[in-house]
């Protein structure tokens, strides 16, 4: 379970995250939806302890991320904004490295890597160097890396960004499977289709604040609209920065 309690973060004089509170439960896919610049990435970075909050706190399974970053990160699998692969390493080597960084033994690392390569259908790229990978292949490696230590909580920053249709569908399927397996999945997106396709709950972010929180159906009911798109436009007060 991931909890954000009145998170606040400023960069210089800009208030990137003003006041963000929400809960992402186990067995659920929670979407952090908002236009570009709403504070999604910054909120996620506060959750996985890359940034220190100026106010409020982030909890991962009850552990305060700012106080015990290592313990919190151990319970988190993170797919950041940029996949950040090493061009001279193969997909398999990326996974083995991540496994060792998370503290798995050599034998465990081998086993988990083999299992994930099979699960995400990565046999074809397992032993190729990542320099020549497509966007989809890169993101797959990054996702596999996030799931290696079988974390209870998975945080994905715009996971389908730049992916083609088959890759997007595969990513959504994986996300759904994780939640159905009892994991807590939190992902950020500015794409409405994504929300209706896989999400159980939605947290709508606008200008560094939570504009609304609930199931897609609840949000429709609250706004009195029949289409999610209309509902969101009303909730965030503008159409700017939303993608279809």
């Amino acid at each position: 379970m991931i909890e954000a309690q009145n998170l606040q973060k400023r960069f210089g004089t800009t208030l990137a995250v003003e006041d963000v509170s929400f809960t992402a439960r186990d067995g659920c896919v929670t979407a952090l939806l908002g236009p570009n610049g709403a504070g999604k990435t910054t909120s996620l970075r506060l959750l996985y302890g890359l940034l220190q909050p100026d106010g409020g706190k982030a909890l991962v399974d009850g552990i305060v991320a700012a106080d015990e970053p290592l313990a919190a990160r151990h319970r988190l699998g993170v797919l950041p904004d940029a996949p950040g692969l090493y061009g001279r390493l193969t997909a398999r080597e990326h996974l083995l490295y991540a496994a060792r960084l998370q503290g798995l033994s050599a034998a465990e690392a081998e086993a988990h890597t083999a299992a994930l390569l099979a699960r995400l259908d990565m046999g074809g790229i397992a032993d190729r160097r990542s320099a020549g990978f497509s966007q989809g292949e890169r993101r797959k490696v990054a996702l596999a890396r996030a799931l290696l230590h079988d974390p209870q909580n998975v945080v994905l920053d715009e996971p389908t960004n730049g992916l083609d249709v088959p890759a997007t569908r595969a990513m959504r399927k994986t996300v759904r499977e994780l939640a159905d397996g009892g994991k807590c999945v939190l992902f950020s997106t500015h794409i409405l289709q994504e929300v209706s396709a896989v999400c159980d709950r939605v947290v709508v972010l606008a200008r560094g604040r939570v504009a609304a929180e609930g199931t897609p159906a609840e949000l429709l009911a609250r706004t009195g609209k029949s289409h999610l798109e209309d509902a969101f436009v009303q909730l965030i007060g503008t159409e700017e920065g939303l993608g279809a």
């Binding site: 890359l50 290592l70 950041p80 940029a82 996949p83 960084l101 503290g103 890396r145 230590h149």
Partner: peptide
């Protein structure tokens, strides 16, 4: 960033 998100 992707390096620092590990529990290391």
């Amino acid at each position: 960033e992707s390096l620092l998100v590990h529990a290391v």
